[in-house]
Amino acid sequence: MVRELKGFFYFLILVVAIVGLLKLMNLISGNLHKGYLGEFKSYEEVERVLNIKEIFRPAYLPQNMLWPPAHIFAQSSPYVTIISEYSDKDSGEIALLIIQTEGRAYYRRKELELVEVKEKTSYSINNVKGELEVGTCGDGSPCSRLSWQADRYRLVIALKAPPFELLRIAESISK
């Protein structure tokens, strides 16, 4: 009996050691990979730490959206990407997503993913052609998404609302 319990105790130590080792390896690889994806408190911190000079920010936000963003994720390596998530004042859920990337905008947020696209059309944002998609998200609420190319960056905005507010946010975005 005692031998068996000892065995379980040693096994527990093994599991804890593996978890600790994985965390340590994650920490070390994070320190070795300068510029890899991290979370930042503000755009200023992104500028300072990652040395990214061009950050697209919205000058307009709908009234129900909280400032500053709930999460800012950014990386400078292997390519520049800045992901900003804004939450809704009432529900606290992520309701607006802005992605600026030199690569592919593969980032996904389940709450803002269009499960049904009702309309897909071209739209001009500050004289640049973009693609506007209107439909519904997973919970059935109206959602809209706009993407366009601004210099070397791909910009994507996804909003949990009809496209009216989305277009106002897009037109207010500047470096």
Binding site: L22, K23, N26, H33, E39, F73, Y107, R108
Partner: peptide, 18 residues
């Protein structure tokens, strides 16, 4: 997703492999 990789994951393989 990014949030999971940064805040919940024990080990992010992409971080090491890149």
């Amino acid at each position: 997703n990014t949030y999971f990789r940064l805040n919940e994951a024990l080990f992010d393989t992409t971080r090491l492999l890149t």
